[in-house]
């Protein structure tokens, strides 16, 4: 039975906090970016712990968390990066459903692991659906709170909490299944649409040299810095679709790893695509971190994605199953 809707007040916005769900599909042909949670796996885990649908909206919290006030009692889960969450001075366990008391505050502290934490709440964060999604895409001003990041004194409405959500308090993702976010992960890639645009040296170099995440990195993409990835001739192609994970290389020979907010199309040659199963690892990086690439086949990438999802379903079955 639904209980009455709940409100969360923003006392401090944090560095960059946005409302995200699993993205805005179906409008890329009109130039609309998919966006959605950078670490969709972490958001999904939070929602499943709470008994929400996978695509319920939560807050994506970047590096420095907000301070929030809960008007009513509400079950929540914090997943993804460990940014030292506390409530009224007490540490809040990660990957676990916790019952926030009416009038309690949620704060964050030091970055212990990862870069993006997800606050999911029983009933999900609600708001106006824009083209089928609540995801915030700041660049085009769509979704979330008027298409922007969270500000001081914003308020969030929470959907009706089903009674089972209250019963989920204490439920957690088993320790061994929690991801370990490192600051220099190895992510796997499959060869891309324009591999033929690159020299053999570029393909070799990609898999032996580490690449640093520069300060010109955000939800749209990471500009990486490392060994040059030379083209055979031109770096430019006639614009075509790109997706999160596409590794584009402009004429400066330094790769750009496209992330959740990427545009639907791009005009740089793509050397490779990061596999979906490793997207969480990349989503948890901040400027100054680095990553290395390993090559896998497209078939292997699909197998890894499938087993990744099967493992999640085994640990935390989706709602309704």
């Amino acid at each position: 039975m639904p209980t009455k809707p709940s409100t969360i007040h923003v006392l401090h916005p944090g560095l960059f906090t946005t409302v995200q769900d699993l993205g805005r599909c179906g409008y890329q042909r009109f130039g609309v970016s998919v966006s959605g949670a950078m670490d969709a796996w972490a958001l999904t885990v939070g929602n499943r712990l709470l008994g929400n649908p996978d695509g319920a909206a939560g807050l994506e919290i970047t590096l420095q968390g907000p301070e929030l006030l809960f008007e009513q009692a509400l079950p929540i889960a914090i997943t993804g990066a460990d940014l030292s969450p506390t409530s009224n001075g007490l540490a809040i366990p990660m990957w676990t459903v916790v019952g926030m008391q009416a009038g309690s505050r949620l704060q964050f502290g030091m970055r212990r692991q990862g870069a993006r934490a997800y606050l999911t709440v029983g009933g999900g964060i609600t708001g106006p659906m824009i083209l089928g999604s609540l995801s915030t895409h700041v660049r085009s001003g769509l979704g979330g709170l008027s298409g922007r990041a969270v500000k001081k004194w914003d308020q969030f409405s929470v959907g009706p909490v089903i009674r089972t959500a209250a019963r989920s308090i204490g439920r957690s993702l088993p320790e061994p299944s929690r991801p370990r976010y490192v600051t220099s992960p190895v992510v796997r890639v499959m060869l891309g649409s324009q591999t033929a645009y690159f020299t053999d040296e570029a393909i070799r170099q990609l898999t032996v040299s580490p690449y640093r995440v520069t300060t010109e990195s955000d939800r749209m993409g990471y500009r990486l810095e490392g060994a040059e990835l030379p083209h055979r001739a031109s770096a430019d192609i006639v614009s075509e679709a790109v997706c999160a994970g596409s590794l584009q290389v402009p004429s400066n020979r330094q790769p750009i790893l496209l992330m959740a907010d990427c545009q639907p199309t791009g005009g740089y040659a793509k050397l490779a695509t990061m596999i979906s199963a490793d997207r969480s690892l990349a989503a948890q990086l901040a400027p100054g971190d680095s990553l290395s690439f390993r090559m896998v086949s497209a078939q292997k990438a699909s197998e890894l994605l499938r087993s990744n999802r099967a493992e999640l379903d085994r640990l935390l079955p989706p709602r309704g199953s």
């Binding site: 599909c25 179906g26 409008y27 890329q28 042909r29 006639v238 614009s239 075509e240 679709a241 997706c243 639907p264 199309t265 979906s276 699909s302 994605l305 499938r306 999802r309």
Partner: peptide, 20 residues
């Protein structure tokens, strides 16, 4: 899921849980 036509190609997105 969706099709994205561009100048010279069309990219077809699908749900990898339902098909391959």
């Amino acid at each position: 899921v969706e099709v994205v036509p561009t100048y010279r190609s069309a990219t077809v997105y699908f749900d990898a849980r339902l098909t391959d």
